[in-house]
Each structure stands twice: as C-alpha cells, then as structure tokens.
Design a protein around this nucleic acid. Structure first.
Lengths: 235, 235
DNA sequence: CGCGAACAAAAAGTCAGACTTATACGTCAC
DNA sequence: GTGACGTATAAGTCTGACTTTTTGTTCGCG
C-alpha cells in the first residue's frame, strides 16, 4: 500500500524501521553505520541515506564519534504515515489503534461539522455514493468492499472540511480502518447501527446541518472506540 | 529552536525546504540533483541525502531519468514539525496559523478532558505553576515570559492526556503560539480573559472535572481562533 | 499514415576508497 | 581529584567510475 520500498535505501528502511518502532533496540541503543551497511549488504552511501530518513522521523539521532542512537518513543514523529504503518504492523498494535481512534474522536466530528458548511455538491454526491456502497456491502461477508467505501467516506469528509490539517489525516484514518479490518479477526458483518449512522451523516452534510453532522459523526467514532474496548482489555 | 541544520545536508535543507513549501517551485517542477549540488556547493552524496529527507516528507518525488519532481501541497507531510516551521516562516503564514488553530480547537478540549482524568499530582502542580507564571507575566509587556509559560501549559495538558498522538502535538502548538507572538505584531498585553481561563483550566484538571476542563479549554482555543480572525480578514 | 519495436540518451542509483573532522575517553602531569 | 592534552573512533565529506531504469525518438513494417 502506498510506498513500496523504492530503491535500495527503501528496502533497508522497510526492514530497519519496523525493528526500531517495535522497540527491538531500546532507547539509547547505538548502531554503527558501517555495521548496518554490512548487515543489509548495501554500500555506506545507501545506508547513510536510510539513516538520514530515520533521523528526519526522529527515530534516531546521528552524532559523530558516537554512532546512530535510537531515540525514546515519545520523540518519534508518530504522524508520519510510514511510522504509523510500521507501528501498526508491530506488537502493540491494539494500543496504537486505540490512541489513533481517540484522535479520530477528537478530530472527525469537528471535521464533519465543517464539511457540512463547506462541502461542494460533488463532494456531497460522492459521500452519498460511499454511504450507499457501505450499505450494499454491509451483509454477507463483503468486508473488503465495505472497507473501501468506509475509507473513502471518511476521507471525503476530512477533505470536505476545507482544513488541510484535517484532510491530511485521511491517510491515518485509512490505516486505522484497514488495520482494524485486517488484523483483528472480523468474522462478523459490520454493526448495522454504524452503517445507518454513516448514511445519516451523508444526509446531514448534504443538508448543511453542521451540528447534526458533528453529533452523528461523534456517535460513529465513539462506536468505533467502544468496539476496540470490547475486543481488547484495559482502559 | 530544536533542530539547527546539523551537518551540510541540514544546511541545504534549511534553504531548499522553505523554498519548496513557499511554493517557489510549482507542483510538477523538476529539479536535478547535480544542478542542486552545484547550486548549494556540496557534493552529490550530501545533496542526495537532503533529497531523501525531502522525499520522506513527501515534498518531492525522485524518479529515474526524470529528476526530482515537486509534489502538490496536498500531499505534503504537514504534521512534520520541520515542515510546519518552514511553512510558518513563509508567505501564507496567517492561513497556516488558522488551519493549525482549527486543529487545536478540535484536539485540545478533548485532551484537557482526558488530562482531568489521567493527570498525576506532579502534572497538576506543574500546570498550576504555569498558570501562575502566565498571570505574573500578563501585564507590562512581558510577552516573552508569558509565551514560555503558555507553551509549557498547553504542552503539559497534552502530555497529561495520556494519549501519545495528543502529546506529540505539543511541538505543533508551541510553533503556533510562538508564531502568533513573534510574527504578528502583538504590542498589547494578552487578553485578561484568556489568562483567567487558563487558571480555571488548571483548577478543573486538578479537581478531576473532565467536562469543565474540556469546556474551559474550548473557550481558550476558540478565543485564540477569534483573535486570528480579527487580525487577518476572510473566513 | 499509423503503430510497434528497437535504440540511444539522460538522470538517478549504486559502489568503493580516500580523506576530513568532531568528539568521547583515557592518560598524565600537577 | 582536577585539569590539560593526545589519541582513537565513527560519522561526515568528496570524487569518480559504473549500473540501471526510463523516456522519447527513430526507424521499419503493415
């Protein structure tokens, strides 16, 4: 999905990045460029490029005479889609899904409210189409088709909000929804109530009813959060 | 602040990055690595590392036989603190400040509500201390001192929420507050009502009153948004 | 005239090796 | 014990040669 390791340094990143985000190297660990280059069988130039990328994500810090030190997790650029993907593929996926869903709870209702004010006629049409698509795939184990429309739906809302910071969360939401569908075993069809809510959100946005769009979307994301709480313990 | 261009490639980034985010090169523009290396008087290796970083920020895409093409703005990683800083330093700073402040409006109230539930005694103490510091610097053109406490205040709330996605927005908020204070001419002392609200938020968090903390924080950020609307036109 | 295949050029990608520079750490004198 | 000094280390930088992919053109055939 999205960025398949372009070039040699990309392949190195796809192996080294997940290792780091998985906590395989505790904070403060020191890696040496030459050693890594040997391990991954690439030249130092390629390895250096990979390290530079990790550095720009604040996953590591490179200092002379010391080496490449792994930074503590609370300094990572956790909004970088690539970092998100690496972390969702790792061990503490459920904790990751939770914190991302809490973010959705804060952002998406507000975005939906703005969308009701700013959405173009075309966006309204697309939104309705997506909602109908969700309905069509809501029964009979058509999870993949449902997922596609679900992702598109939320992406349209975020885009239609007119706020670029919200819009850029489309990828994040997509990762979350995909992660939820693929990693947790979802043998059952989606919650019918959720499907209905999506249709109603599309209606509210089209009608320009901001407060209703916001309230309905809040129900949607809070439902998603509850679903997570049911499937995995603690709070 | 934070990352002063470490290494040669860092200096290149500090010059090239802002040029791109400023829209100096329209989307689709092609840059050639060798040409850039010559322009910035660095070797190709260094230039390649810089390009890799820009690529990881989704500012550019590097393809064989074609060159380094600038991506459209809606694909940029606008949550990368470095990108935020570059954009805030650029021309459409006020539009940028607006979209970031709207994000704050969505996130910070929810974070404050969570903080009321999760904050440790130490965090409560720090929060109160910050609020008092804001009061102390609220009169007599002590804007810099006020700013420091303001940033610390919001950072503590975001950290105390216990959600790492919220916590990582501390840097973003810091940039916004700093940008507001430094770039717009703020000859006047901060709004007394805002100062009072901060004190009340600290109280509500300490008391564990989530709904009150959320409502008060909403007033704070909505006030910040209105302040922006007053100083620069359009909606 | 249109279309597909072969070809050539251009730019990024990769590599190896030599050299430079900053800096942590150990040593030694005081 | 403390400070200055020297040294080893690992990142940083540069250069030049070579490879690979991809685009666009040209040429031949239908």
């Amino acid at each position: 999905m999205s960025t398949p390791g372009r070039g040699l340094h990309g392949h190195v990143l796809e192996r080294l990045g997940p290792s780091i985000t998985a906590g395989e190297y505790p904070p403060g660990s020191v890696l040496r460029t030459d050693e890594l280059a040997q391990r991954f069988e690439v030249s130092r130039s390629v390895m250096r490029e990979a390290v530079r990328v990790l550095e720009s994500m604040h996953l590591v810090e490179s200092r002379r005479r010391v080496g490449v030190t792994v930074r503590p997790a609370n300094e990572w650029n956790v909004y970088d889609p690539q970092v998100i993907r690496w972390r969702l593929a790792g061990a503490d996926r459920s904790r990751q899904l939770r914190s991302l869903t809490v973010l959705r709870c804060a952002v998406e209702p507000v975005a939906a409210g703005l969308a009701a004010k700013h959405a173009t006629a075309e966006q309204c049409a697309e939104l309705t189409e997506c909602a109908l698509g969700m309905v069509a795939h809501s029964r009979g184990h058509k999870l993949e088709g449902y997922l596609v429309h679900d992702i598109a739906f939320h992406r349209i809302v975020l885009n239609a909000s007119g706020n670029e910071m919200f819009a850029r969360l489309g990828d994040v939401v997509a990762e979350v929804l995909a992660g939820r569908t693929h990693h947790q075993v979802m043998f059952e069809d989606p919650d019918p109530a959720a499907v209905t809510l999506h249709v109603q959100v599309a209606e509210a946005v089209r009608a320009g009813d901001a407060v209703r769009a916001e309230a309905l979307t809040r129900e949607v994301v809070l439902g998603a959060l509850q679903e997570l709480d049911i499937l995995s313990p603690e709070g």
